[in-house]
Design a protein around this nucleic acid. Sequence first.
DNA 1: ATGGCACGTTCACAGGTTGTTCACGGGATG
DNA 2: CATCCCGTGAACAACCTGTGAACGTGCCAT
Lengths: 121, 121
Amino acid sequence: MATARDDQVEVIRLGRLEVRPREFVAAVDGRALQLTVREFQLLTALARRRDRIVTRQELYTAVWQRPFRSHERSVDVYVKRLRRKLKAALPGSELIHTHYGFGYRLSPSVSQLFHTAATDR
Amino acid sequence: MATARDDQVEVIRLGRLEVRPREFVAAVDGRALQLTVREFQLLTALARRRDRIVTRQELYTAVWQRPFRSHERSVDVYVKRLRRKLKAALPGSELIHTHYGFGYRLSPSVSQLFHTAATDR
DNA sequence: ATGGCACGTTCACAGGTTGTTCACGGGATG
DNA sequence: CATCCCGTGAACAACCTGTGAACGTGCCAT
């Protein structure tokens, strides 16, 4: 748990993407993205867990702050909308990765830890 | 800068293989394996029981969480798939050992010190 | 008040991926 | 050598995710 003073300067950088949760701003190359409240909250939740696989349940309770139901699709819908805006701001980038059966992961690029060596699938 | 709570990060190391159950990651030399949910669960179950002979029944109930039937072959099928991916990541290695009539054992290297007398079954 | 608009939520469908089961045959054991 | 165990490929079922779109709500300007 960070102190209040730390929160004031919370800045998450992922390559050219920068998220400032306390200022309600997400920007690429210093240019702010036009996000809705939910989109921004989801991006923040992902950014705070960068380079980790995060389950839909964890994302849902973090953003929506209510019990997660297994058939809930809201996270998927907002991941799709986020991807669209991120792609528009960073063409050719792939920030939000899907881990089939596990969840999503936000990473600036194809990180070394998750480098896909398996070509036999 | 240290991690907040190291005791909450379960990490199982077996030679060059590393399993992090709570992060949904299994890696060889820091490179993540591309595993499905079942494959990952089975590897985790084996890793948590490393260097021990584990019966199919124990593995099955640990992963599938339902009663084991004697003719059940799911464990075998997933051991095969796991071996294939482990072999691709660690050529020449033999991590999952078969103990005929007893079960499987996950060990970092080949050791022949497992010859049970099996006098009491 | 009325209409337009932006947003959040939910649903339904399609396609692809994964899980489960079966059958066959090779191999280990005593 | 007889028996049982295990490896393996394949087929099908079940599940997961991407996606478009409909619906309801609240806000704002007219």
